[in-house]
Design a binder for these strands. Structure first.
Ligand code: MN
Ligand code: MN
Ligand code: ZN
Ligand code: ZN
Lengths: 125, 125
DNA sequence: AATGTAATTGCAACAATGTTGCACTAAAGA
DNA sequence: TCTTTAGTGCAACATTGTTGCAATTACATT
């Protein structure tokens, strides 16, 4: 969880993600950035920000990847909340605080969770 | 949910998936098939089988896609069970019967769910 | 069993997404 | 300011999935 260098690309990408109320894909970020940096750099910055615990990676129900800010990750860095994926407007939203309850046989060692619910968001329903 | 034609490719692919105790990826299926048909055909057969409700599609925690048979989908075709993804042996297993409990605000219309738990499976732990 | 038709297939071409190697650039500690 | 090395751009590549179209084949009907 050590901090890396603060570059223009990193600053701008983090700002974009933090200011958005929905999760953003690499493609969406690249569009917003308007050529500020190379697409490879965006991939690397997203990896780094995830590594540093500033953002978290979301695998959507269609397999696409999006990134969202890490609000409420003050003490422990954990993301077991639900992500809602709207089939109409394609938005992916972090349902902060809503965590599913489940239990697996003790033989399974859990280290990560990805829970996506898909359907229609309040705006599209 | 109507049945399509029964071709060699469809029969073999379904057999592979049904006989496997873990979910299979397109690449794994193509390997097992040893050139029985084109890779495009595999994609199309997998789509068709999913459409027909014979198998179900699993989006893994890393974004990869796998397919598993539909056991226990007798009456209603539903797949809200958990999928366990082992970080070591890379296997994805359907945890039949284990469904997470959660609740979203009423404004959200739910139609599909994908829940993946990642960690170490009993064999690898 | 032979026939007709539409579903299915193979192939080539394309698109989207992500990764890697390497030379060059620049952040930040000394 | 200098030095070190993390970060970047670019080109090249890999993987995964999609599409159009002509050729094939399952199977319902004769
Ligand atoms: Mn989230
Ligand atoms: Mn399953
Ligand atoms: Zn929506
Ligand atoms: Zn394992």
């Amino acid at each position: 969880m050590k901090q890396g260098r603060n570059t223009t690309a990193k600053t701008e990408i983090l700002k974009l993600i933090n200011q958005s109320d929905v999760a953003l894909s690499h493609a969406e970020i690249q569009l917003s950035l308007e050529g500020l940096c190379d697409r490879v750099t965006i991939y690397r910055v997203l990896d780094r920000l995830t590594e540093e615990g500033r953002i978290h990676r979301i695998v959507n129900i269609d397999g696409g990847v999006k990134y969202a800010s890490c609000t409420g990750c003050s003490a422990v860095h954990q993301h077991s909340h639900i992500h809602f994926s709207c089939q109409k407007c394609k938005s992916v939203t972090c349902m902060e605080g809503i965590e599913p309850a489940f239990s697996l046989p003790a033989a399974y060692q859990i280290s990560e969770v990805n829970f996506t619910v898909s359907g229609l968001c309040p705006q599209c329903a």
